[in-house]
């Protein structure tokens, strides 16, 4: 299983040091759209330089290398326990090399043992499917942007948000307003309409696995995604909250069933340092191809 561990270390390195193409394209377009000579344009230019420098030096794009979250899709019969063990070993090794910062703190004692391992760290989600393919996706989710995530319970009287799509739109835009200047925008929203308090946030995060320029297969959600993106970018919040045209780079929304008594809208915010990658693995655990 050493090949598997090595593959996962390489997955961590590339995720931490290289922005995926779809995100980079969105940032380049954002820079083109901002007026020359504005502070919004300067901010995006520094972001571009930073992306280039991190890639060249194989060093973390941002010093907060975030929560380490793996999503594994595997065939029936795949050894999930061994895979989780390899993930832990890979995280430990990647931390030693410096692809990950010593970033995991014991919540009770405040101690950081420098390994990035502990209860809930890293997170490994395994999911079986009928295909024979093994794929591992990785997200490094920074703390600053995690802090501006929000969960609304509808109806939300103050925002005049009822239990319908218009109510969802209102609370999602409120979250964008509240997040301004924090969470290192321009950001990307992952949203789940419905679910419970735990699954709502879980599904909202999984939306970040989608390609930034894909379209939602559900026409209603697709329309809502496009509307929120357009409206948010008309608010003038801009990169870093400096003012400007680019407040969000993307919006991804899913829906999950709820119980009649609850109606949650859960919103996860991802900073511009959108670190996610994925690989498919061969039978020995070697990397076959990159997914983003």
């Amino acid at each position: 299983m050493n090949a598997l561990k090595d593959s996962l270390v390489e997955l961590i390195r590339r995720t931490s040091a290289e922005i995926p193409d779809d995100v980079n394209r969105a940032l380049v377009t954002a820079l083109e759209n901002e007026k020359k000579g504005t502070i919004a344009a300067s901010a995006l230019k520094i972001i571009e330089q930073n992306i280039e420098l991190a890639k060249r030096k194989s060093q973390p794009i941002c010093q907060d290398t975030g929560s380490v979250i793996f999503y594994v899709d595997c065939p029936v019969g795949f050894d999930q326990i061994a895979c989780e063990e390899a993930a832990r070993e890979a995280v430990k090794a990647a931390t030693k090399i410096g692809y990950l910062r010593q970033n995991s703190v014991d919540s009770l004692t405040g101690k950081n043992d420098g390994t990035n391992l502990g209860p809930g760290a890293p997170v490994v989600h395994c999911h079986q499917h009928r295909s024979s393919e093994i794929s591992v996706r990785l997200m490094l989710k920074g703390g600053g942007c995690e802090n501006v995530g929000a969960q609304y319970s509808l109806p939300a009287e103050k925002l005049h948000a009822n239990r319908d799509l218009d109510g969802c739109r209102k609370v999602i835009l409120d979250a964008v307003l509240q997040a301004q200047g924090k969470g290192c925008g321009p950001g990307i929203l992952g949203v789940c309409i419905g679910g419970d308090r735990a699954t709502g946030y879980e599904y909202s995060k999984q939306q970040f696995l989608r390609m930034l320029d894909d379209r939602n297969a559900n026409p209603e959600l697709d329309a809502l995604e496009q509307d929120i993106l357009k409206t948010a970018n008309e608010l003038g919040i801009g990169p870093m909250g400096f003012g400007g045209k680019t407040t969000l780079l993307g919006v991804k929304i899913c829906a999950a069933n709820r119980v009649p008594a609850s109606f949650f809208v859960s919103i996860s915010y991802m900073c511009w340092a959108f670190r996610r990658q994925g690989v498919t693995l061969g039978a020995e655990g070697e990397i076959e191809k990159w997914l983003y």
Partner: peptide, 12 residues
């Protein structure tokens, strides 16, 4: 206000 997340550029 420095650029949040620009760890590499600022370290330089």
């Amino acid at each position: 206000h420095a650029i949040g997340g620009a760890a590499q550029v600022l370290a330089e």
